[in-house]
């Protein structure tokens, strides 16, 4: 009856999304009064760090046949491990990997699936979890009726919390299936917190007038320790890289703080960001629709306001 969490890694490193998934799963297991283990697939360089996030045991699947990521191979390995250790609830991050395997796992285990869960189950004997729908315009409670359950947990649901105890790390006894795809290359931007994991995001749009003006955005992001993002027209014009595009067709994010600069706030953009905890909008047009979705606003020319806001951050953070 235990909980098994898939701790994903990217290029051999477990990141915040995995630490959050473990923290969530520990809380879930304590609530259900059951044990909680984690599984990693492939060589993980920071497995000792992962072992501090509350799992009773970490099962490593680290064989030569392991691919960097193959939903078919991974789902079979996780489902087989779950069966052998008696885990009935599988938790994964609501990430590119987690979303790819969740449906497969649900089919393999005949499990009820809820993706993008944003809270622990409600009190009571039924297993009911909440998630948002319609890009944040609605919330729904999902009741899972089956014994086996698969859930993916969206970022920023619980802050990662270390445990006093350290997990045992053991090798999992599972037979791996053949790879169904061949991973050729994994390209990521080094040294930057990826947008779906960022707590602070500074985002800019067409109001910037051209890619050569992004220095003030990068300066502000650096002062804050924030990740930079952009609106669709900016990505489409190649002013900024494709992976920075947030919105309906780009990445959906839910940081603690989203600062939108020179972005009008079209509904397709809001769909990707309106789950942010606090939204600050800088726009010279007081009628920009984004102000309706914002908590705080500055009606001003961004070329004046952004350097001044940067100074304000420097002064306050130094105080």
């Amino acid at each position: 009856m235990s909980v098994l969490v898939f701790a994903e890694n990217l290029k051999g490193v477990c990141k915040k999304s995995s630490f959050e998934a473990l923290t969530y799963s520990r809380m879930l297991a304590d609530k259900l009064g059951v044990g909680m283990s984690a599984v990693t697939i492939g060589t993980v360089s920071n497995i000792e760090e992962l072992a501090s996030y509350g799992a009773d045991k970490i099962y490593q699947i680290n064989k030569s046949e392991v691919t960097p990521f193959d939903s078919k191979q991974f789902a079979k390995a996780i489902a087989d491990l779950a069966q052998s250790i008696g885990a009935t609830t599988i938790v994964a991050s609501h990430s590119s990997q987690g979303k790819s395997i969740a449906g497969r796992l649900a089919v393999r285990m005949n499990a009820g699936l809820v993706t993008a869960v944003n809270s622990l189950p409600q009190e009571g004997s039924d297993f009911i979890v909440r998630r948002s729908l319609f890009s944040g315009k609605a919330l729904a409670d999902y009741k899972v009726n089956s014994t086996n359950k698969v859930i993916t947990v969206i970022g920023n649901t619980v802050p990662p919390a270390k445990s006093d105890s350290v997990s045992d790390i053991v090798d999992a006894e599972v037979t791996l299936g053949a790879a169904s795809i061949n991973v050729l290359e994994t390209k990521t931007v080094d040294g930057e917190i990826p947008l779906p994991e960022a707590e602070l995001v500074v985002s800019a749009g067409r109001g910037m007038k051209g890619p050569e003006n992004w220095g003030i955005i990068e300066d502000l992001a650096q002062t804050m320790g924030a990740t930079t993002a952009c609106s669709r027209p900016v990505a489409d014009a190649d002013w900024r890289p494709h992976h920075e595009h947030v919105g309906q067709t780009g990445v959906a994010i839910r940081p603690n703080l989203y600062i939108a600069i020179g972005i009008s706030g079209a509904i397709q953009h809001l769909a990707g960001v309106n789950n942010s905890k606090v939204i600050v909008v800088i726009n010279k047009d007081p009628e920009a629709p984004f102000f309706k979705a914002a908590d705080y606003g500055i009606v001003a020319d961004l070329f004046d306001a952004v350097p001044k806001l940067n100074e304000a951050f420097k002064n306050v953070l130094a105080s």
Binding site: S132, L139, D141, Y142, F291, D295
Partner: peptide, 26 residues
């Protein structure tokens, strides 16, 4: 059917934007 939706709701609306002048950014 292994999963059912028991309840829907819309999130509470934002309470309204609070505007800041350039001299009050700190």
């Amino acid at each position: 059917t292994l999963v059912e939706i028991t309840h829907y709701e819309t999130p509470p609306p934002k309470s309204g934007v609070k505007l800041f002048e350039m001299e009050n950014l700190e």
